[in-house]
């Protein structure tokens, strides 16, 4: 958890003299620049290289290994399917993106609310917390058909299932952040006669923010999984439905095209959570 808390690019307070001594090193200018460029570029360069190599292997296998297209379609074929069927694919993509985002948002509201309740009520905490931990261990995907039995084939079943599996990581991470506040901080605010609400607003909540975002990052991917599973078993729309449909047609290239779009949606959602985290931290930092 602690690495979540430290922001990137920490600005340790150097003594003002420390910088001056460093810059007087007699190294050639170009050498220093190249060195620094490499160090900055490496975290981007290496993963890109790995991806390119894997894509190259796929390309080579599909071109020369003489595998049937059902097993391994050529990357170029996947790309052309993606381009030619884009209107169809994007309709399904929006459907999945919309429902998974909605499921995540419902999980956010209910999860954070329940975490606050169990932080402040000993009775609720004792009643619910062991079950929350227990449910973490249950393979929740196995319960998906139950939601269809209860709620029928449609958006309510998919949304409630996505909310259900996205909810647990959020409650647990948030409750952990709210309760693990160092007791000295609580004592400090008590010594200033802070009210319970002030303690929540100025100590517990800011302290829990990194925990909440750690939970959100897990939860946002969980919501997507929930919607896909829901679309597998109870839907006529969405990329999950499309994947199932394409597999019944043995159209592997279409499956892969749909998976690529799923990755795009997932990355965008994750990126929004990251951007939100930065913004919230900046607000709490500067005010």
């Amino acid at each position: 958890m602690s690495d979540v808390m430290s922001e990137a690019g920490s600005d340790i307070a150097d003594r003002p003299t420390a910088g001056a001594a460093r810059s007087s090193r007699p190294k050639p200018e170009s050498y220093l620049t190249n060195d620094r460029l490499l160090r900055v570029a490496r975290p981007v360069l290496l993963p890109t290289l790995t991806a390119a190599v894997l894509l190259g292997i796929w390309w080579a296998l599909a071109s020369w290994a003489d595998l049937p297209a059902v097993v391994l379609p050529h990357p170029a074929d996947v790309w052309s399917i993606l381009k030619s069927n884009f209107p169809l694919l994007s309709t399904h993509m929006w459907h999945t993106a919309y429902e998974s985002t909605l499921g995540f948002l419902i999980a956010m509201v209910t999860g954070v609310s329940l975490a606050i309740l169990i932080t402040y009520s000993a009775v609720l905490r004792e009643a619910f917390y062991p079950h929350l931990i227990l449910f973490q261990l249950v393979p929740k995907v196995a319960l998906a058909p139950l939601f269809v039995v209860w709620l029928g084939i449609g958006a309510p079943a998919r949304l409630s299932f996505a909310t259900f599996i996205a909810f647990f990581p959020l409650v647990i991470a948030t409750a952990q952040g709210l309760t693990e506040v160092p007791p000295e901080m609580i004592r400090l605010s008590r010594s200033l006669s802070a009210t319970r609400w002030q303690i929540f607003r100025t100590i517990r909540f800011p302290y829990a923010i990194p925990y909440i975002f750690a939970g959100m990052k897990i939860s946002v991917t969980m919501a997507m999984i929930g919607i896909i599973v829901g679309e597998f078993i109870a839907s006529q729309k969405g990329l999950g439905y499309l994947i199932l449909f394409a597999s019944s047609q043995a159209n592997t290239a279409l499956i892969l095209a749909a998976v690529i779009l799923l990755c795009v949606v997932g990355l965008v959602q994750f990126g929004i959570v990251l951007a939100l985290e930065r913004a919230v931290r900046r607000v709490f930092g500067s005010d």
Partner: peptide, 14 residues
């Protein structure tokens, strides 16, 4: 009454 505790107890986000 002002209090200085054993630990600085600064709020890390401030």
């Amino acid at each position: 009454t002002g209090i200085v505790f054993q630990e600085p107890t600064l709020l890390s986000w401030k």
